[in-house]
């Protein structure tokens, strides 16, 4: 299993905004553990909020990394806000809409809106919001013995990313 929590990138406004989607499937193991059938009732498979936060962090992290053509080691520094109002169930799609609020040499702050698409009703519904700060690790962790190569955006990642990104204009 690869730690990729987005399936495709729908829209990219360079230096501003990135929109990604993920479809939630009953074939995913984690769905069945959240929540399993037990003494209190039948199984209630849901997309865990923690993994939706990870999906948004990946979306926003790619956006921040793309600003400097993935030359910086962009790491999640702080989740300053995360709220989830509704559940997401198998068969629905999740949209992660990430925006850069502020960016400098040290890092970036982002906001995000998470929505779910119900294929039966054909309606997108907002289900959560996030605020995440990313750090350019080389600019903030003086003295740490970090590798020179970009362990965040390595060759393997960039190869996958090239398939996710919409065709460059």
């Amino acid at each position: 299993m690869r730690w990729l929590w987005i399936d495709s990138i729908l829209d990219h406004e360079p230096q501003k905004r990135l929109v990604a989607i993920k479809s939630v499937s009953l074939a995913e193991d984690h769905i069945h553990q959240h929540f399993e059938a037990g003494p209190d009732g039948p199984a209630q498979p849901l997309m865990p909020a923690s993994l939706m936060l990870e999906g948004m962090a990946q979306t926003a992290g790619i956006l921040v990394g793309s600003v400097r053509d993935f030359s910086e080691k962009v790491i999640l520094a702080k989740v300053t806000h995360a709220s989830f109002e509704r559940d997401v169930t198998p068969g629905q799609s999740i949209k992660y809409d990430a925006v850069i609020e502020r960016m400098d040499d040290a890092g970036a702050s982002t906001t995000g809106v998470i929505s779910a698409f119900d294929h039966r009703s054909g309606v997108w519904t907002e289900i959560g919001r996030t605020e995440i700060i990313f750090s350019h690790v080389d600019k903030n962790m003086s003295g740490l013995d970090l590798p020179d190569h970009n362990f965040v955006f390595g060759e393997n990642f960039r190869s996958i990313l090239s398939q996710l990104l919409p065709a460059r204009q």
Partner: peptide
């Protein structure tokens, strides 16, 4: 913690409407 300093800089900029250089 160290990473909170970045958060504080961003929030001060927003609260007071000025830019803070690195």
């Amino acid at each position: 913690e160290s990473i909170d300093f970045l958060d504080i800089v961003f929030r001060l900029e927003k609260a007071f409407g000025f830019k803070i250089g690195q």
